[in-house]
Write a protein that binds this DNA or RNA. Sequence first.
DNA 1: GAACAGCATTCCTAAATAAGGAACACCCTT
DNA 2: AAGGGTGTTCCTTATTTAGGAATGCTGTTC
Lengths: 264, 264
Amino acid sequence: MTGNLSLERGLAVLDLLKDIDEPIGVRDIARRLDQSAAAVQRILNTLAEHGYVEQIAESRRYRLGHSVLALARYILRKDRLVGLAEAELQALAAEGCFNAFLAVRRDDRGLYLLTVQSKSPVVIRSSPGESFPLHSTALGKALLMELSAEAIIEILGQAPLERLTPRTVTEISKLVVQIHGSESVGYTTSIDENFAGLIAVGAPVRDASGAIVAGISVAYPRSVGPLVEIAEVGETVMAAATRISASLGYRDARSQHKDPSHAA
Amino acid sequence: MTGNLSLERGLAVLDLLKDIDEPIGVRDIARRLDQSAAAVQRILNTLAEHGYVEQIAESRRYRLGHSVLALARYILRKDRLVGLAEAELQALAAEGCFNAFLAVRRDDRGLYLLTVQSKSPVVIRSSPGESFPLHSTALGKALLMELSAEAIIEILGQAPLERLTPRTVTEISKLVVQIHGSESVGYTTSIDENFAGLIAVGAPVRDASGAIVAGISVAYPRSVGPLVEIAEVGETVMAAATRISASLGYRDARSQHKDPSHAA
DNA sequence: GAACAGCATTCCTAAATAAGGAACACCCTT
DNA sequence: AAGGGTGTTCCTTATTTAGGAATGCTGTTC
């Protein structure tokens, strides 16, 4: 898997700007990426020509440019997965007063593709393009379903699992057990594990080959918990996920849950 | 203005994928960009590592990857202009049953940053990241305000002005006169010029230096036109644009004297 | 107010890097 | 079974980049 190193360096600049809120100077970028100022200057010139970065007129510092929206539009308007999921998420948000999410895995993090806020006063502020931890969220666990213990450790084992609340599972072996246990029921949960007072229920989305390519989840405040049976929410979320999977061409041999390994 | 040619080629691939709806193969990209398949392969490998492109498993073709959303999030959530304009656009959409837009100029096209749909049944389907012609839209003309005739010709003169409706202004000299004429009233209009039956009114947004950095507009069906005086809509739009400009630090010498802070 | 320290930006040449033809493996269709 | 299509990799040439030094600018400090 050989690549293009110059392009790599340019993308590193983009990725850096993405993670920095404040505009940043050429030399500052060069320092952080361990490159010469001249090299970064040339990279910024090229990125600026395409509108992917912009220079603040007076401070001469750089930030991401507005043209990146044109790229995002492709995903939000042309991507099949996003298009199919949107109606399902909105139905979930409307029916159950849930916040609803669609995400994919990106290395050791989840990446929100769609976020639909509930009509209820309690709203979870997340937006498409935002990333989130896999180990503490229902959606993250759904994205890790049907992976072997080795594969999960390969993905999450590089860094210690961050303790976000007292109930976060920080032992990877326990997390593996939890995820593997969820495969028989078909949905995942996170109760106070990512944010105190928040309950989330997730389920995986499959493409035509049967591979898990995305996940959806709903989240709601713990306070309404007693009113709703988690298992019931799980069935609702699973049903929505299954409909999305079916639209993507997934045909489950057994229309019930369980045993997805032999999808023809 | 020297740049980085390898990065340039990589961005060309991104820009191509952005404009193509269907996934595309390596050799096909190479043909369109007049490069070798091997070079494009290396570029795609690097882009894929960052998640900016994805390969369809079975067809082995490539399309834009979901990570581009992470870049867009920066603009939609961190950009000052977008943040300030959002409330104003929503107010415009709610009060007047208008579709409301925020955009910047990108070379010879406009680029929507925000689009807010009206509550009325007639909705204009546009989304952030979409581009639009400057010469036939109120928003486009607002983005060209206060430019000299030479500058406007420099921007739009490369290609003939496309006739989108019978009322589109396709003579650049007439367009210049129209734009310059709008500067004294402060707002721009497009009546059936971009899309038959559609009326739009736009106004420029300025930063602290007084330069026009963006524009806003509202659009509504011609059928409700007789009910609303365009001049009145113009004042409403201008007022919203002025508020955004003020939030960006613009202090107009000619505007109403409120001026609480000291200007040096 | 002058020297200074920081900045973005440009030039030039050594040296790292990418390009491209050819080759390989893998579908399809014929 | 053959042919044309695909994505992908290898290897050498030579294109292209990197980086120190230089420039001009801005704001700060002594």
